[in-house]
Design a protein around this nucleic acid. Structure first.
Lengths: 338, 338
DNA sequence: CTGAAAGCGCTTACAG
DNA sequence: CTGAAAGCGCTTACAG
């Protein structure tokens, strides 16, 4: 199948390449008859423009990259997909870039800003740490989602997130209200004031308001995968069998923990209560259904896109938006028996 | 942040753009001192080449597209990821394209073959139907995965799949062996000899070998999502409450069915047995763990990549590879009580 | 080992 | 309404 160029089409239609380019870009200043003829030839040849050539000349509108670390994470995937849905009708075009769980999304951003002249970035489930420093040089606007960049001091970084501290507190409070006292927390590395650190701080708020001391050895730092959480839980419960409740900082972790509990002969929620975080779809189908902190995926997605466009086109300063999350009570938490 | 071009670098380093291009492409014919100087300037400027410009000249090695229909499907995602893993060290470069569940992956292929000069295609979880006809014109080699293209008569289409008929039979046999007779099948649209039709035919093989008639009204055509399967199952069991077992043509469907069963007060596997298909990770964590047909993801991925490269570089004819799947017995099937 | 020049496929002032 | 020509950032014979 020969690949036709704009030149081939021009020759076949008996016009100049300029004219072909015009009809290709649906410009108004073309004689209807000419346009029709060119369009027919293009259809016959199944002509589709060469994106590289076009990209070389046209700034591509504005290209925006949605960068997602962790291809398997169902929550982040849902978030990215929702963003794409809010992208329709915008002048900018969007691309989604997946980087490995272990990889550096900021290096990916730098690379994209050069290679593809990407003009704006949305980090889906990003982190902010010392590696983020490389972004200081970048003048493209960016937005962090599910994490606040308020204290990050990047000149052009906005953020959209839930109030992780308040929701961490709510999650823990749910467990406390059910009468639990020996509670474990399964979470990620806490650094600075990132999301995990805030959820942890919120949990501590609830605990100390209730006058319940927290035994540091009940904090488990786990990988955020089913198998990682499963192994962490097997190991933890072999040691701390008297734990009656778990606050898991993601639904995926919650599911891994529940499976491990079941395998050592303990039911959820009868023997151990579990509260998750994120609100993934599987949480509504799992047995038991997960009690969890539900992040408003669609809301976060919509706001993220709009905040970025406001910075990019409106020249507005970055803002740090906090959206409402809610704790949904389902089946994985029950009154403490112990 | 200024974006530097090869020209800027050349000027700053006091060489020609040709030389810069040479060091950029790591060609051997550059004076070490010159190379070092150019590299330093590039580093200082954080120079990264413009992909569009490069793509315009260089055939990009060979660009191969992995096309995946359905961004949410965990099985297909795992398959695509495994393919990428087998891609390391190959001369070709790969890109992953997601198309909507409802979209036409063949149109996407045509578009990519023009826009990005894609030279080969891997359809992850593709279909073969009347729409596929557009591929007749395409001379780029392609491979279908999880479905056989043996009878499709595309000149350059290879395929890698499991023996769906045999495995459909094995799935049904498992249920039969457990004593079940009133069995439902939850599957997709059967057309021609696609994967669903084969799984169905295999199930019929097992049934008729066992002398068990199949009640056509126990075939349920469902969407392949948690919620789709859930709704189908609620509706089906309201009518056919005496069904004691289900063969679900995907694990996701199996999970939706199990959740629905539980909600109408029936346990799996005590009251109803369920066998799934695919072997997604969640199946090992769900309660109960899923008895399922496990597709050898890594094997399919590796073979797909190699078959394509053989066609592309070795000029070999397309082959139709059948890889071994196995039925893994876990917890969702139990002896029939009824 | 190095550079001047042509060209990849397109777009866009500019002139008519 | 239409076309000739320059140029986007790079690569690659070709000549030295």
């Amino acid at each position: 199948m020969k690949i036709y160029t704009i030149k081939d089409i021009a020759r076949k239609a008996g016009v100049s390449v300029t004219t072909v380019s015009r009809v290709l870009n649906k410009r108004p200043d073309v004689n209807p008859a000419t346009r029709e003829r060119v369009e027919r030839v293009m259809a016959e040849c199944r002509f589709v423009g060469n994106a590289n050539a076009r990209g070389l000349k046209q700034p591509d509108g504005d290209l925006i990259a949605i960068i997602l670390r962790g291809r398997e994470n169902p929550f982040l995937n849902a978030l990215a997909e929702a963003m794409l849905a809010h992208t329709q009708g915008l002048k900018a075009s969007f691309l989604t870039e997946f980087v490995d769980e272990q990889a550096d999304e900021f290096q990916a951003a730098i690379r994209l800003s050069h290679e593809k002249r990407v003009k704006g970035f949305i980090f889906v489930g990003g982190r902010i740490d010392e590696r983020s420093e490389v972004l200081q040089d970048m003048d493209a606007p960016m937005v962090f989602t599910t994490i606040s960049a308020e204290n990050a001091a990047f000149p052009r970084a906005a953020s959209v997130s839930i109030d992780d501290r308040a929701m961490g507190r709510a999650a823990m409070q749910t467990l406390l209200d059910a009468g639990h006292r020996r509670i474990a927390i399964f979470g990620g590395i806490r650094q600075g004031d990132d999301g995990f650190a805030k959820r942890y701080a919120g949990a501590m708020d609830a605990l100390s308001a209730a006058g319940v001391p927290f035994d540091e050895s009940r904090f488990v730092q786990t990988r955020f995968s089913l198998s990682g959480a499963y192994e962490s839980a097997r190991q933890f419960f072999a040691d701390k069998a008297d734990t009656t409740a778990v606050f898991a900082m993601s639904d995926t972790v919650a599911i891994g923990v529940i499976r491990a509990l079941k395998d050592i002969g303990r039911s959820v929620p009868e023997d151990v209560s579990v509260v998750g975080y994120d609100g993934i779809e599987m949480g509504k189908f799992f047995l038991p259904r997960l009690t969890t902190v539900e992040q408003p995926v669609d809301d976060i997605a919509r706001q993220s896109v709009h905040v970025l466009m406001d910075m990019l086109e409106g020249g507005q300063p970055p803002s740090h938006i906090v959206v409402d999350a809610k704790l949904v009570l389902r089946e994985s938490v029950a009154p403490c028996q112990g």
